[in-house]
Design a protein around this nucleic acid. Structure first.
Length: 469
RNA sequence: GGCGGCAUAGCCAAGUGGUAAGGCAGAGGACUGCAAAUCCUUUAUCCCCGGUUCGAAUCCGGGUGCCGCCUCCA
């Protein structure tokens, strides 16, 4: 089975073939750390992390880089508003990023470079461009000369004229071409700066990704990912900078995710219609947020709504309940039992992988996961015992699916319980005693008491279980 | 103006030529002291019009509606 990915460079689904067999170089655009990230930002973090995990599950060695943009206009403005330094601001929100990302089950990338830690590499790249005649200097600002790079527009599939005709921004008349973009900005009063051949200043936005990608992953990488709003100008400019400097292809596969809509509009910081991941986590479980994100194809836009998240919450519980039931279900050696179910599970694994191989169709894969949930629930319903081979097979399916999608294990830490587990067990025992004596009033009041503490009871043929509500 | 995306049951959402996955919600039944969880049953002809084809949600043409990029933006 071969993974196919939709490549925005060619606008086609293509078989994924890394330059070096078995090894993948993967760069994903990370956040500008001037604020908490919102759930629209969270989509690529979750999706591309899952893609990375799938590749690793297929046995590929993935070097996965996600950067932090820690110097730009927004950073500077925010820092001055708060009266702190830009690097303090960055430290604060990088820490917050990891708190939120960890909680959302996003694995740590191989590298998480910060732009300000790669100033020498950035300067070097700008110098290379200047030497090759792709950049020019005006008053200490260095611009990329788009007309010197004939392929400009190849990712956005737009000519210079096309791009220009829709321009909504007034142009700096000093530039040779209106689309020329800044590689290095001269120092302004009160702003952080670094020494450079063009005087004191700081890097432009686009250059950092090219520089860090080339430094950490090489001059040509396999995958570069990000939100579709980055196609132009950010990624287009990255291509121009990198390829003009090296003369080599910068990226083999460009992949972009669709955005999240809120009230029919793209969720974005500038529109102000956003919900931070941090706020979302207070309202919904991480599992539900992940199911919401992964439950649609990554290139489709999805609408965020309370209703959708509640639906995801229910679905996530269904998966969780099933997995829980499976782990505690009694198994025996019955060799004939569940034979058909085992075949179903084997077929499900193939279909699961096929879905993911088809442009990482997580929604399809989740459909298969739910099929497995039904098969398992069916086999264990009514407290039936299952065969040991069936249970092993089912458990390994869950383990595998979870390795990629992270839809089962990321439970809230039990530390959030207001009551120790032993005490819960004692109360359950008292309730059992009461039920045995048919004192249902007492039994129900114990159950209510636990419910008030966020604990739900489930009576099964094997005894009473509890879980957090 | 250029480039691109989307339109599938009450809701969310797969499926891109062979007679519509899955989830949520709802209804009926089973299990239960009652619940919860779970199981069984049940709910669509795929925005509209035309075309290609033995056959289309799936291809082509034309509409309608919504969204996005061309400025910072995941």
């Amino acid at each position: 089975m071969t993974l196919k990915l939709y490549n925005d460079l060619t606008r086609r689904k293509e078989p994924f073939e890394p330059q070096e067999p078995g090894k993948v170089t993967f760069y994903s655009c990370g956040p500008t750390v001037y604020d908490y990230f919102h759930i629209g930002n969270a989509r690529p973090f979750i999706i591309f992390d899952a893609l990375r995990r799938y590749m690793e599950a297929k046995g590929l060695q993935v070097i996965y880089v996600q950067n932090f943009t820690d110097i730009d206009d927004k950073m500077i403005n925010r820092a001055s508003q708060l009266g702190i330094s830009v690097s303090e601001l960055a430290d604060k929100y990088i820490k917050a990023y990891f708190e939120d990302a960890d909680a959302l089950g996003i694995r740590r990338p191989t590298h998480t470079p910060r732009a300000t830690h790669y100033i020498p590499e950035i300067i070097d790249l700008v110098r290379r461009l200047a030497e090759k005649g792709h950049a020019y200097v005006i008053d200490g600002d260095v611009y990329f000369d788009v007309m010197s790079f004939p392929a400009y527009g190849k990712l956005a599939k737009q000519s210079l004229d096309d791009l220009l005709s829709g321009a909504r921004v007034e142009v700096d008349s000093r530039k040779r071409h209106p689309l020329d973009f800044v590689l290095w900005k001269s120092r302004k009063e009160g702003e952080p700066f670094w020494e450079s051949p063009w005087g004191q200043g700081r890097p432009g936005w686009h250059i950092e990704c090219s520089a860090m990608s080339m430094k950490l992953l090489g001059e040509t990488i396999d995958i570069h990912a990000g939100g579709s709003d980055l196609v132009f100008p950010h990624h287009e400019n990255e291509v121009a900078q990198a390829e003009a400097a090296t003369g080599k292809p910068f990226v083999k596969y460009w992949i972009h995710n669709g955005y999240i809509l809120l009230d029919q509009e793209k969720m974005s910081k500038s529109l102000g219609n956003f919900l931070t991941a941090r706020e979302a986590r207070e309202r919904y479980s991480s599992l539900a947020i992940r199911l919401f994100m992964l439950g649609a194809h990554y290139r489709s836009p999805i609408s965020f709504s309370d209703d959708s998240l509640r639906q995801a919450e229910s679905g996530a519980s269904r998966i969780q309940n099933c997995y829980f039931e499976l782990q505690s279900a009694p198994a025996d050696d019955g060799s004939e039992k569940n034979k058909d179910d085992i075949l179903l599970l084997e077929g499900a694994l193939d279909r699961f992988n096929s879905a993911l191989d088809d442009d990482f169709n997580t929604a399809g894969a989740i459909g298969i996961l739910f099929d497995v949930v039904r098969t398992v629930n069916h086999a264990t319903s009514g407290g039936r015992t299952v065969s040991r081979p069936f249970r092993e097979k089912a458990l390994s399916f869950f383990k595998y699916a979870n390795e990629i999608l992270g839809l089962t294990e990321a439970e809230k830490p039990s530390a959030s319980l207001q009551i120790p587990g032993e005490e819960v067990e004692q109360m359950i025992a008292s309730r059992e005693e009461a039920r045995k004596n048919r004192d249902f009033n007492r039994a129900d009041s114990i159950r209510d008491e636990l419910a008030a503490m966020g604990i739900v009871l489930e009576d099964t043929p094997h005894g009473t279980r509890w879980k957090r509500s």
